[in-house]
Computed example of a mutant assay.
Amino acid sequence: MKTLRSHAVGGPETLTLDEVAVPEPGPGQVRVAVRACAINFPDTIIIRDMYQMKPPRPFAPGGELAGVIEAVGDGVTDWHVGDRVIASTGFGGLAEKVVVDTRQLFAMPAGASFETGASLFLTYGTTIHGLKDRGHLKAGDTLLVLGAAGGVGISAIELGKANGARVVAAVSSEQKAAFARQCGADETVIYGRPPFDKEQSKALAEAFKAACGPGGANVIFDIVGGDYSEPALRSIAWEGRFLVVGFPAGIARLPLNLTLLKSCDVCGVFWGAFAAREPARNAAHIKELFALLKDGKINPRISARYPLEQGAEAIRVLQDREAVGKVVVTMGDQS
């Protein structure tokens, strides 16, 4: 079988398409024939050894996938050959076949495509955990989303609207702003590329304040970090919640006096650790996401599809912030 693997620290150009033996499931495991694997920000940094998780090499990136069970290991009774499943694996998904622990499996929602199934967990799972458990978002709140045109950003727009919030989407181009509005954003802010000098940072803060309104943003969903974070924090409401979700633009340095002046909270959002530590609460979130998907209130926007042979290019597109919506690598029969 084919798999796209990292043999040395580096960018997507270092990945190689390898031919390896088909893995056999052990006790409590199943083998999944992968049909779709979503590409996410962790895939761009795990191959550079910059992620919290550092798998032994060689390994395949790809942390969430959907496919069909084709073999089960000893002791597996709740899953069967032919079941359509979604798996959250952390890595290993860019392969034609993957062995997965049954604790990492969820049944595919009825009627959902493999592409949709593979695009749910890391994006929407991160966001529902962040907005519900960390941000305590409620109807009538103003939600500011940075990096709003990517997969996680679109999930924040949709889940924000589903929970009755007013959503301000911050993006880097008019094309992305139009896409964010199409996905439900009430207001958009277009920002430039960092680094920002003092005046540029102040101007961006004023743009955020104007879009959020006089009350400020009750919840800020910061997916990008870097020079964008401080201007966003300056637009926060009294007792607002600033959610640290990711930092493709770099790790931000926040002046903590702002947290005192606004009596606000700065909260980390680490969905993978939450899911591992509190599987029952995570399962409840996933159940809620499936219901929202069925009702049409969320819908992963697949903007680009690549075959496994071009998986490195899929990672590069996300790394270079060219993606609008979700990027997915597809394999095999999609029916």
Rank of each mutant, 00 (worst) to 15 (best):
C183G: 12
D78M: 09
F196A: 03
D295M: 14
A205V: 00
D186E: 09
I251R: 13
L293N: 08
L4H: 01
L146D: 03
L131N: 06
A36D: 01
V168S: 02
C183A: 15
V269L: 01
D186K: 05
I154Q: 04
L17D: 03
G213C: 00
E13I: 08
F91N: 07
R234V: 04
R134M: 10
N282L: 01
G140M: 02
T14E: 13
Y228K: 11
A107Q: 15
H129M: 09
D295E: 15
V167D: 03
D78H: 12
F196T: 00
L137F: 04
E206W: 00
T330W: 08
R316A: 13
P25M: 07
K198N: 12
A237I: 04
D222N: 13
S119K: 06
H80R: 14
L292M: 14
V98L: 15
V152G: 02
G62V: 05
S173I: 08
S172C: 07
E158D: 08
L143A: 08
K198C: 10
L131Y: 03
F59V: 02
N282F: 12
A203N: 07
A217S: 06
I286F: 12
W238N: 04
L122Y: 08
L94Y: 04
S119T: 10
L261Q: 12
G311P: 02
G63W: 07
A312S: 15
I157L: 06
G75M: 00
Q175N: 15
V9P: 14
A156Y: 06
I128V: 12
A162P: 05
E70T: 12
G160C: 09
G147L: 06
L146I: 11
R281F: 05
I39F: 09
A148S: 02
T102N: 09
G92K: 01
A60M: 07
G246A: 15
S88H: 06
E313M: 02
Q334W: 14
A148Q: 00
A207S: 13
D18Y: 12
V168H: 08
R253T: 15
E288C: 03
P194I: 10
G11T: 12
Q29A: 03
P12S: 11
R321L: 07
Q175C: 11
R35T: 04
T123I: 08
N282S: 15
M331I: 14
L122N: 10
L15P: 02
P61V: 03
P25I: 06
P56Q: 13
A149C: 04
L146W: 05
G10K: 02
E322L: 14
P195V: 09
V32C: 01
T44V: 10
D333Y: 10
A203T: 11
M331Y: 10
T116K: 05
L293E: 01
V152N: 07
A180I: 07
V68T: 14
V145H: 07
G311R: 02
V9A: 15
P58W: 06
P12A: 11
V317P: 09
R277W: 04
Q52Y: 13
P195K: 10
G147Y: 00
A252D: 09
V224Y: 04
S201L: 02
D141H: 13
N282T: 12
T14S: 14
V171N: 05
